[in-house]
Design a protein around this nucleic acid. Structure first.
Lengths: 251, 251
DNA sequence: TGTACATCAGTGAACGCGCGTTCACTGATGTAC
DNA sequence: TGTACATCAGTGAACGCGCGTTCACTGATGTAC
């Protein structure tokens, strides 16, 4: 969970997606369209062969270009990967934000559940993009600064839910477990950055709930529940419901 | 979490590791040693370049063989990968079992915590082997039957702890959440296979605790807590302690 | 509005590389009599 | 114990493949006057 401040967020969000009508010349429009097409084809290749096997040449071939032409759009294979990673974070972030605002008038625990289910639904629909951002990192690839903003969108939604829930007394502080000074200071910084007035105990339970979301999705998608659980939908909802309840009740 | 019955377990466990003195001829001993050396080198290459980039030729070069010679030991690159996966499952399984038996005389929640910490310690010490088995799957690679036994070792330890805890009343059933018929039948089968007399509520909480172990390790190892949490050791222990308490107390 | 120049997308050949796998072979090690 | 034969590890050349990236180029699109 990367985190940036709200200001940085506003600056970063949406920068990765295209800006359809801002540029007017035919050349500019063609450039935007082809950039998108390259990314779309690359995304499909990701789904077929995984991120490590993503090949500029194969993508170029399918787009109908000669391989060197792709370099007019992305300076290297890694930059293309970065673009895909940013798009993936933005896509799941958007789903989470949409799920949150669609349930704006409901209780905080119900909204939390909706957001978690939106994340899972996106993951199931885009397994390789999910693996790209939440699975094992691509070997030899270091995520650049530009990914931090998009990567923060989901955590941001969750932290705002915690903040709202604490403010409205829908989330109770509960017992504060013993914790070291370093952890308390980490939580204090998190509070300052993104979750005003949310007590340590709630932040801790919030992170636990979030780790359970990703843990469950990983177990499910990477086959570790094979032959154990058969109705994944129901199982996920069951687990998330309980995690939610624990989050808001603190016990 | 794959699962096999206890009988299959006994049959599978240890089959992947070497059998030092069972074979006597110089040729056989050399074969065992070289097989191990190839795997050791391959493991190191895994750590350097990731599983997708694991190259038979590179491994052969470092072992000091010509590339085709490796085919005397592994019929293909995928079989070598399978061997590494089995070894990884066996390694983490062994650590979990050792942690469990080392704390045999303690309370069930303490033992659970020890097992979780052993899994994390192994993951931190062998990040790429961890990614190999609990990260995103290797594209184009389908795990064969032979991995199921070793993959079951850790879940097996945890399920036995649940069974013990329920038997000794250290784990209380707690409230049983509403769940669908399919889920109840999945739990019933799990109970039959591996966790006699453990009620649905406890199985459900147990799976939640396990998903939290993997969720936390993923968040930590794959960089999603970067700049948020600084003392990962303390954070993991804090989260696991709370997960444990919830597991045994059921609320 | 028309022209001269600048910008830029896309081409095609080339560089140098590493990969998995097959195959016929040599020579050392093991086995049966 | 010695010999004839079978087994098997390792060699080296070859097959056919795909990769990322560079480079000088052509021709179309855009811009300034």
């Amino acid at each position: 969970m990367f985190l940036v401040t709200a200001l940085e967020m506003r600056h970063n969000v949406g920068m990765a997606t295209t800006v359809p009508n801002a540029s007017r010349t035919a050349r500019d429009r063609a450039r935007v369209e082809l950039t998108d097409e390259i990314k779309a084809v690359a995304r499909r290749h990701l789904a077929d062969h995984g991120s490590a096997a993503l090949s500029l040449r194969a993508v170029a071939r399918e787009v109908g270009m000669v391989s060197s032409a792709v370099y007019r759009y992305f300076p290297s294979r890694d930059e293309l990967l970065t673009a895909l990673i940013i798009d993936a974070y933005d896509a799941v972030g958007e789903r989470a934000e949409a799920a949150d605002s669609a349930s704006r008038d409901r209780a905080v625990d119900a909204r939390w559940l909706k957001v978690c289910e939106a994340v899972r639904a996106w993951a199931l629909a885009n397994p390789h993009e999910y693996a790209l951002i939440y699975g094992s990192p691509v070997p030899g690839y270091a995520a650049p600064q530009a990914t931090i903003g998009p990567a923060s969108r989901v955590p941001w939604v969750l932290l705002r839910l915690l903040t709202d829930g604490v403010a409205s007394d829908e989330i109770v502080a509960g017992e504060t477990p013993a914790m070291s000074r370093t952890i308390r200071s980490d939580f204090a910084q998190l509070r300052r950055t993104a979750a005003p007035a949310v007590p340590d105990a709630v932040l801790s339970r919030g992170l636990a709930a979030w780790s359970q979301v990703l843990g469950n999705i990983n177990l499910e998608m990477f086959g570790h529940l094979h032959n154990v659980i058969h109705d994944y939908d129901a199982f996920f909802t069951l687990q998330m419901r309980r995690a939610c309840e624990f989050l808001v009740r603190g016990a």
